[in-house]
Amino acid sequence: MKQATRLTLISRRYCHLCQDMEVALAGLAEELAFEIEVLDVDADAALEQRYDELVPVLLHNGHELCHYFLEVSKVRDYLSKIG
């Protein structure tokens, strides 16, 4: 049985762009059958150093898919290539 693809959202609590991307990802995750892991950039010094002003950032295995806004077509294309 194939394990579900897991995308990682680097986020922060008081960021409206982060909240918007998380909501948009939830609907897309249901449609495309992937899981979302949300990591708080402020809870990890290494993440904060790397992504501080770029959040929200969507990653798959360290590969940046998009930041600031969800690029649905880019995520769809990427998932179809790895799927």
Rank of each mutant, 00 (worst) to 15 (best):
V41N: 12
L59V: 13
H67M: 02
L32C: 05
Y78L: 09
Y68K: 13
E35D: 15
Y51Q: 09
R13G: 11
L17N: 11
D20P: 09
N61Q: 15
R13M: 12
V72C: 02
L28K: 10
L28S: 11
G83Y: 06
L65M: 11
H16F: 05
P56D: 12
I82C: 12
V41Q: 12
Y78I: 15
V75R: 07
V72N: 02
K81W: 04
D40W: 02
A29H: 04
R50K: 06
R12H: 09
R13E: 07
A4C: 01
V23K: 13
M1L: 12
L58W: 03
H60E: 14
T8F: 00
A29L: 07
L79S: 07
E48I: 08
T8D: 01
H67N: 14
K81H: 15
R13S: 06
E31W: 01
R12C: 08
R12D: 05
L25W: 05
G62N: 07
E71P: 03
K74I: 06
E35Q: 14
A45I: 11
L54F: 13
E64Y: 00
L54Q: 08
V55G: 10
Q49M: 05
H60S: 12
G83P: 08
C15F: 10
V23L: 15
L65T: 02
R50S: 09
A33F: 05
M1H: 07
A29Y: 00
L70M: 00
L59W: 03
K81T: 15
V38Y: 10
R50I: 00
D20A: 14
F34G: 14
T5V: 15
L7D: 03
C15I: 13
L47Q: 07
V38G: 13
E31Y: 03
A33S: 14
E37M: 11
L70K: 01
D44W: 06
M21V: 12
Q3K: 07
E35S: 14
E53I: 10
K81S: 12
R6Y: 01
Y51M: 01
D42I: 10
S80Y: 12
L54R: 13
F69I: 13
N61E: 15
S11L: 01
L58T: 04
A33K: 06
